[in-house]
Design a protein around this nucleic acid. Structure first.
Lengths: 148, 148
DNA sequence: GGTAAACCCGTACCTGGGTACAGGATGCAA
DNA sequence: TTGCATCCTGTACCCAGGTACGGGTTTACC
């Protein structure tokens, strides 16, 4: 297998990311530092493109970069152990996503009610007991949601 | 009506926000600068607490602070016009929230499939054509979603 | 060997929504 | 009048996930 080394710009292009992002991922521990040319330029094996696609796929599924680093780390040195922990982490993320969906559905309901009620003045709404908008403190509940 | 002026700390406490947040909202144009004492301390009318609750309620519904400033602005000087634009903005936000829910549901589906398929190794998955994880570039579509 | 593109590094900046800190002035009660 | 809580200002920092800039090499091709 002839290995055709790729330069930073080629890897970035092939994976659809900014070249600076590669450096950033090295700093974050998501990608190993590759070989260097005599002049100090990075030379990547083609697998790096796959690695970047894996990172991006995980990110699209809602994993933070720290979590992605963790997934990679766990997958990396499992030395024949049958369970990398990926299944458990995926299940946990699934629960997280479902919670977020629930939070957004509650928000959706409230917005729908506001539209139905024809709310047209926040100050008046805040003073009116029949306005559906939740002006009171929510000490519990939908806290970390935020749709924007 | 005797007006009982409130100090920064009292307003913050009553509205459940940090005192620094008040200054931040002044800077962002969400709250008018209030009167000052001779010594320069801010003196708020009690309505400010309501204003803060309105801001927080809008934020919980997914409006950004810029959007909240806009809503307030629009509501403020409508000079008898029948439509403040609040209804339209609420409907727009509703559509945005619904889109986010859809994006998260797609993510949820993918995570479910990954759990069902028993994916346990990202590198192997990326190489396997039968893995449900979307490693390919998504040039269109779920772009601004991200569940984390 | 010349030249332009690509690369190197360190560092600063961006968004969004705040929070913290330092050093000095005020407010209020005893 | 003393003492302490609270307030003032400007500025820096936090999170995540990058992106941009500037000045200086290196590579690649003619």
């Amino acid at each position: 297998m002839t290995e055709r080394w790729l330069r930073t710009g080629e890897v970035a292009e092939a994976a659809g990311v900014n070249a600076q992002t590669l450096r950033y991922y090295h700093r974050r521990g998501l990608l190993e530092e590759p070989l260097r040319s005599n002049g100090g330029h990075r030379l990547y094996p083609p697998e790096t493109v796959t690695a970047l696609r894996v990172i991006k796929a995980a990110q699209r599924l809602g994993f933070t970069l720290d979590e992605v680093a963790d997934l990679i780390e766990a997958g990396g040195h499992r030395h024949g152990r049958p369970d990398s922990g990926l299944r458990a982490r995926t299940a946990a993320k699934l629960a997280e996503v479902e919670q977020k969906i629930e939070d957004l559905r509650a928000i959706r309901q409230t917005l729908l009610q506001a539209v139905d009620a024809g709310c047209d003045d926040l100050v008046a709404c805040a003073a009116s007991p029949c306005c559906p908008l939740p002006f009171a403190e929510l000490t519990e509940g939908v806290r970390h949601a935020g749709a924007g």
